[in-house]
Amino acid sequence: MKLNRRNFLGWLSAATVFPALSVNPARASAASAYPAQPVRMVVPFPPGSATDIVTRGLAKELQAEFKESFVTENRPGAQTTIGTTYVAQSAPDGYTLLVAALSFVSSPSEFKDLAYDPVADFEPIALLGTFPIVLMVKADSPFNTVEELLAHGKERSKPLMGGYGSSSTRVAANRFGQLGGIPVTEVPYKGIPNAVTDLIGGFIDFTFVDIGNALTHAKSGRLKALGVTSLEASPHAPDWPPLANVIPGFEVTAWLTVLAPANTDAAIIEKLHEAINRCLQSPAMGPTLATAAMTPPTVALPDLKPFINDEVQKWAQRFKEAGIEPQ
């Protein structure tokens, strides 16, 4: 089945539950002993990111399910390619997994000499959920709306400084300037928490933050939210308006997914897929998902690879529209 974005988002709103795949007896036997040793879940972002928060919560639930250690391992850097390359080159035995975000599918559009292919070198296991990201400024900023920030950007003599710490926030910062009609200097960071630190310190004018961390920073009084990148307000922050209300066509939907190196035993992939989906629906996982303000869909295993392929193509087009050339 060839997925398009509309079909995928339709699944999310409908919370469709797909039937489990039938399991070949020989493959079931091969996976029956799995896991027999600790499993590493590699996060290519620094601690404190949305990916890190969700992974740690999921690892705890998987450990309870399998009675074996699931260890979160942060390997940030180079726009997530360091950690992703590490997993791509790991043994396809199910003991080294990747928890990836949008940068996973946008990296081919950012780097000329990427050491991996997100479609050919990985097997998707489960989609963890989707969430918007949030445009934020300092709490004491004079700007309380997107309109006010855009007006300021048009009036001042130099570009606004927009920080980003991931591929999705990079495109968001670029599109904010491009579609909003203001000059923006994009400032790269190792991760979103690093960009937040400089925003609080007054070194940049704005940044985009995953909604889970945005809620935390807004509640603490350190940052102020001006709007979300989804086409509709998030139920977790209904008072934060969509940027598309002011900037037509502005939309970025982030997601998280778990993957294994290519050629990992299909029975292990199925076993993990089913276990992860059970964990996402468990009450114990609720607080973690609430912290990340993430909605967990249940998507059939055969549909994950076409989804990843479609996302690669979609983000290639967005980078082209943004004028961002591979480096």
Rank of each mutant, 00 (worst) to 15 (best):
P241C: 03
P242S: 03
L243K: 01
A244L: 05
N245I: 01
V246T: 08
V246H: 04
V246E: 00
V246F: 05
I247C: 03
P248G: 05
G249P: 00
E251D: 13
V252C: 05
T253Y: 13
T253H: 07
A254E: 03
T257W: 07
L259F: 12
L259N: 06
A260S: 09
A262I: 08
A262P: 00
N263K: 06
D265K: 09
A266E: 10
A266F: 09
E270C: 14
L272S: 09
L272Y: 04
H273G: 07
A275V: 05
A275M: 04
A275L: 08
A275Q: 04
I276N: 04
I276C: 06
I276L: 06
N277T: 02
R278I: 05
R278Y: 14
C279Y: 07
L280C: 07
P283R: 13
M285F: 11
T288Y: 14
T291Q: 14
A292L: 10
A293S: 04
M294A: 11
T295S: 13
P296W: 10
P296F: 15
P296Q: 13
V299S: 06
V299N: 02
A300Q: 05
A300M: 09
L301Y: 03
P302Y: 15
K305F: 12
P306N: 11
P306T: 08
F307R: 03
F307T: 03
N309I: 05
E311N: 10
Q317N: 06
R318S: 15
K320N: 12
E321Q: 14
E321M: 15
A322M: 14
A322V: 10
E325M: 08
